[in-house]
Amino acid sequence: MGDIEELPVLPAGAYTLRRWETGDLHVVREVSADPLIPLITTVPAVYDDAAGRAFVARQWGRPATGQYPFVIARTADGRAVGNAGLRVISADRASVGYWVAPSARGAGAAGAGLRAITDWGLRELGIARLELYVEPWNTGSLRTAESAGYVREGLLRDWQRVGGELKDMLMYAALRRPR
């Protein structure tokens, strides 16, 4: 799975998933100020152009390690509004995640990005199981997961450290062969 060097462009309706570019620094700047995204990603918590460029450059090397970060961009103008990523855990399993900048929330970008990366992971990469973890309070993300075909499997107590504190996570999964 770690042999993909160039990310494909994935159509997602009004959005497109594509490789990160230096022209996407505006979205890194915006989400750096978000209270949650820097806690659960490598987005810098304090933005400056050097930190933003370093974040984008890190994304370019990730496919060699089995991690596939895509920008969620509006198809109409190419403007980045978020991120959808897939991380291979084994030949049969991967985890996915996504985030959308506050200014672009509520317009369907997260769902479009999640559906596109799910389809790519299950069909193109041939992964049998995609996992997604969501904090129980995050109702928007819970709805997004369910609308993209993910099924809630259970509560994982003290599963992930967020901001230095262990948090419960709901586990969702999408299977190549749904049951």
Rank of each mutant, 00 (worst) to 15 (best):
Q59H: 05
Q59P: 02
G61H: 13
G61N: 11
R62G: 02
P63S: 03
T65R: 13
G66T: 01
G66S: 04
Y68I: 12
V71M: 05
I72N: 05
A73W: 07
R74F: 04
T75A: 14
T75P: 07
D77Q: 06
G78K: 07
G78E: 09
A80M: 05
V81I: 06
V81Q: 09
G82Y: 12
N83S: 14
N83V: 12
A84I: 05
G85C: 11
G85I: 12
L86S: 04
L86E: 07
R87S: 14
S90M: 09
S90L: 09
A91N: 13
D92F: 14
R93Q: 15
R93N: 13
R93H: 14
S95F: 09
V96A: 13
G97K: 07
Y98H: 14
Y98W: 15
W99G: 04
W99Q: 08
W99H: 07
W99A: 05
S103C: 03
S103E: 12
A104C: 11
A104F: 10
A104L: 13
R105F: 11
R105C: 10
G108H: 10
R115P: 05
R115W: 06
A116N: 10
L125V: 11
A128D: 15
A128R: 15
Y133D: 01
V134I: 15
V134Y: 09
E135M: 15
T139N: 08
T139Y: 02
T139A: 14
G140T: 04
S141N: 04
T144S: 04
G149K: 02
Y150P: 00
Y150N: 01
V151C: 07
V151K: 02
E153V: 02
L155S: 06
L156P: 00
R157Y: 01
D158A: 08
V162G: 01
G164T: 02
E165C: 08
L166P: 07
L166M: 03
D168Q: 00
M169P: 01
M171E: 10
